[in-house]
Structure formats: C-alpha cells, structure tokens
C-alpha cells in the first residue's frame, strides 16, 4: 500500500502560540483526497488537529486550504495527483489564524453581507416570480458558482494592504446581483461598492483569477462594475 506524507501547519493559541510543522504518514489505496487524509490523521494519529469541512463535494467552500503552494479545496484534491512530497497543507495565507488549519473568516463574510447579496425591488415585491430570459440568466452562470471559500480574498494584495477593501469575492457577488436583470437595487447597493475601498481598490492584479479553485473570474466582474459605473454616469444606463 503506498503511503503519503502530510506536512501540516500546526498552531494552538492556548498551548504554545507558536506556528510549527508536523509530519504524518497516511497509507492509501487508490483515491485518497487531502480531506480524507486529514480525517485519517484526526482519527488515528492525532485527534487534536483542527480543520474546517462540510460537504466533501466542492460545494460548500469550507475546506479551502493552501496545499503544495496553491489554493485548493481539500475535498477535491486527489493525493495521487499531487506531484511534490511531502504534501504541505497550510491554512489560507494572510488570514487571521484560529487554530491549525482554521482561519478567521469574520471580515470576509461581513464584507459579503455588506454588499447586500440578495435581489431587491424598487417599490413593491411582485406577487409572481420575475421572469428572466435564458440569455440573461446565462450571464450569471459564472458568478453563481462562487462558493465563498475565501481563496481569492486571501490571495489579493489589495486586501493585504487595506483591511477595509471589500475583496474579490464580495465584489464578484455585487456583480452577480448588479448584472441580474431582475434586480432593481440601484442606489441601495451602489454605495457599498462603488468607491475607493470597493471596486476602485482593485488594480487588476489577477491573483484572484489564478487562485480561484472554481476557476471563476472576479477581476472581470470588478472591471464590469467599473465600466457600469462610467456608463451609468455618462449615459444614465443602469444595467
């Protein structure tokens, strides 16, 4: 049975407060994911290791980690496909740490909430569902796949420099609702992102495009929002 060596980032604020590395050897047969490897370590080798996970199918975004120098979802990363040994597992870079592989996502989700991530109507909510053509829906195919794993947020130099910058994920979601034909939020959402710690803090560094495990494109979404801001001011077009 082949074996994989996991080199895992350990940090326990209550015990020593130092960051250190610990190596574990995990046997595997055919298709072991990094998340399953972590389960094995937790069950058989060291019960004190902490990590976030939930769906195990790349839908929930809980298990985004920095594995072998790349942003990956632990649940969809197959150990067989990782070329370098040992397999280095770290929490998301530049995020406040809680314990071991768990980082503090409070800011990240507060910023997501801040852009009002829901469809709003100008006056009264209609009794029936609002219709949308398949073409218009097709425009949203990309951003709705975002699972809020935080990889792009963690990779963005603008976020590293400015705590108040909303970050690629929140702005991708702002795009998702601004580009939606059913949404009539207009100024209600606009003030949250159309400023210098919103879209204009993005310098098209494109780290987010490289980092995203779902291969989405926050940069393009942010550029669309910037363009829409100009179109709105010059031509008075909202969509």
């Amino acid at each position: 049975m082949p074996e994989a060596t996991f080199r895992i980032h350990r940090y326990d604020p209550e015990r020593d407060g130092d960051r250190r590395w610990q190596e574990f050897t995990v046997p595997y047969e055919n298709s072991l994911t990094v998340l399953e490897g972590l389960f094995y370590i937790q069950e058989n080798l060291d019960g004190s290791i902490s990590f976030r996970y939930c769906c195990r199918a790349a839908v929930c975004g809980s298990c985004a980690m920095y594995i072998n120098g790349r942003y990956r979802l632990a649940c969809q990363t197959n150990v067989k496909n990782l070329e370098d040994a040992p397999i280095t597992v770290e929490p998301l870079p530049r995020m406040p740490l809680v314990k071991d592989l768990v980082c503090d996502m409070t800011d990240f989700f507060a910023k997501y909430e801040y852009i009002k991530p829901y469809i709003m109507h100008e006056s009264q909510y209609p009794e029936k569902e609002t219709l949308q053509s398949p073409e218009d829906r097709h425009k949203l195919d990309n951003p709705v796949d975002c699972i809020l794993c935080g990889s792009c947020y963690s990779s963005c130099p603008s976020v590293w420099g400015e705590d108040n910058y909303l970050g690629p994920a929140a702005l991708l979601w702002a795009y998702r609702f601004e580009a939606d034909t059913r949404d009539e939020a207009r100024k209600a959402r606009l003030s949250s992102f159309d400023n210098e710690r919103g879209v204009y803090r993005c310098h098209t560094i494109t780290n987010c495009v490289e980092a995203c495990p779902k291969e989405l494109n926050p940069t393009e979404a942010i550029q669309w929002l910037k363009g829409a801001a100009v179109r709105r001011r010059i031509f008075g077009r909202w969509k």
Partner: peptide, 14 residues
C-alpha cells in the same frame, strides 16, 4: 469597523 467601511466615497473619475 462597519463605520470605517462607509467612508471612501467617489473614485470613479480618478
């Protein structure tokens, strides 16, 4: 921090 977030209007013309 929420109040800090509210500041920073403008930016489209630059």
């Amino acid at each position: 921090r929420q109040e800090v977030l509210r500041k920073g209007e403008g930016g489209v013309w630059p």
